[in-house]
Design a protein around this nucleic acid. Structure first.
Lengths: 233, 233
DNA sequence: CGTTCTACTTGAACGTGTTCAAAAGTGAGG
DNA sequence: CCTCACTTTTGAACACGTTCAAGTAGAACG
């Protein structure tokens, strides 16, 4: 159902029984509902188990920690975003509205979870955590996310030197991380500030990218992409 | 002793008794030692209390949570950085080595704590946490940090338009946040990767700043500073 | 049908951060 | 020296994430 299979303590085999799968999803959906209703911090594992009609231990049989339940939510959100973005990618070809649309769609999809998103980022910030956006374990989710931005770039009217074009999707992903960071801290009504950030920063990015044609700018950009490539390995 | 006074549950009056101050510092120094020796996660409040020869409750009388003990450490680190950086600011006037020196000094000062810095960032990432670098409560520490970068800019040979020069210290602070984020995830020997990031990104920033003289670039920069000013309020 | 193997489920118990009512100290005023 | 109000200190108790030894259920095999 959700994008990434969350690995459990016992490394469940691929062909789990039907009943097991049902229990797994029952626990997950109950957890997500309680997270939404009362926030992550106030939702206890005991409450999730009771509400789902199972024992605490059973919840841990399927999800090795409370954080993994949140991870499952994040995967869920990613999938929703991917779906919601398809129509924009299919129709809108101009770079600025194309990127703006993708970013604002994320905002819409994630809106219901804004309140406890802080908790997610809290655990995601820890380097050792599998939830960290930079960790090995979240690589599939990260690559799926970068892939969206690759489509944004490739399907747009942008004309760019090949090396920059190759790095751009990951840079845009990084930009989105920054926006999410801003979003998490944004408590303005209707997320006005984050929306404003998106609407104003995207044209700026666009203009910056077009500037790379200037000879003086070109050198700096080359060094920048070289630096990024070095650091990635 | 340390930069910021950590507020306690009972909002201790300014003139606390001598004995009280001693207990407070005993608890803090014991905590920091144990954090260093065994990491943040493995250090229990009970262990801190026992090692300091007081009761658990007493530790909570002075520091309202385990995180606040970490906050106290962070203030300590900031002060150390400020001191360590003074000689560079006094002597080195060229922008690139001046900024590089400040950033690398931070790395040196923070090195002993690299291992449990992840935990600090974990809690710092939560928006509601007073430890968040964007929170009101950490404003004094943040401003002190930005102030260092203001000195870096003002005392250097950089020639810049006034509006950009005014925003630059905060941008450099943001840059440092990014470097710290990288550092937290960096497990290369002797922090080679983070050092490389500093040594290569600073000249890049320098070149970028000098590019602002180009007419085409100037407009983008103006919009960028305008955007930042908007978002700050 | 009985046996056995595996997937699943249970809930008591543990460790740790945190709270709090009560005890112990401290010192100024009488 | 006593009293009273204050700060400081105590440690038992609580809540919650997590673990684990023990149990149940159902399928596969003889």
């Amino acid at each position: 159902m959700f994008g990434r299979e969350v690995t459990t303590l016992t490394d469940v085999t691929e062909r789990a029984t039907l009943k097991g799968e049902q229990t797994r999803e029952l626990i997950l959906s109950t957890a997500l509902r309680l997270f939404r209703e009362q926030g992550y911090g106030k939702t206890t594992m005991r409450a999730i188990a009771t509400e789902a009609g199972v024992s605490v231990g059973n919840a841990y049989y399927y999800y090795s920690s409370k954080e993994h339940l949140m991870q499952a939510y994040y995967d869920h959100l990613q999938d929703q975003h991917r779906e919601a973005v398809a129509s924009i990618l299919a129709t809108e070809k101009a770079f600025v509205p194309r990127l703006t649309g993708v970013l604002r769609t994320w905002l819409e999809v994630a809106a219901p979870y804004h309140e406890f998103a802080g908790t997610f980022f809290k655990t995601a910030a820890e380097p050792k955590s599998p939830l960290s956006p930079f960790s090995d374990q979240s690589r599939p989710a990260r690559e799926a996310s970068v892939e969206i931005f690759r489509q944004v770039v490739d399907g747009s009217d942008l004309k760019l030197p090949a090396d920059l074009k190759a790095e751009l999707p990951e840079l845009l992903w990084l930009m989105q991380m920054g926006i999410v960071l801003f979003w998490v801290h944004d408590d303005s009504p209707a997320l006005r500030r984050t929306k404003s950030l998106i609407d104003r920063s995207v044209p700026l990015v666009d203009r910056l990218l077009r500037l790379t044609r200037l000879p003086g700018v070109r050198g700096v950009v080359n060094d920048l992409t070289a630096l990024i490539r070095t650091l990635k390995t």
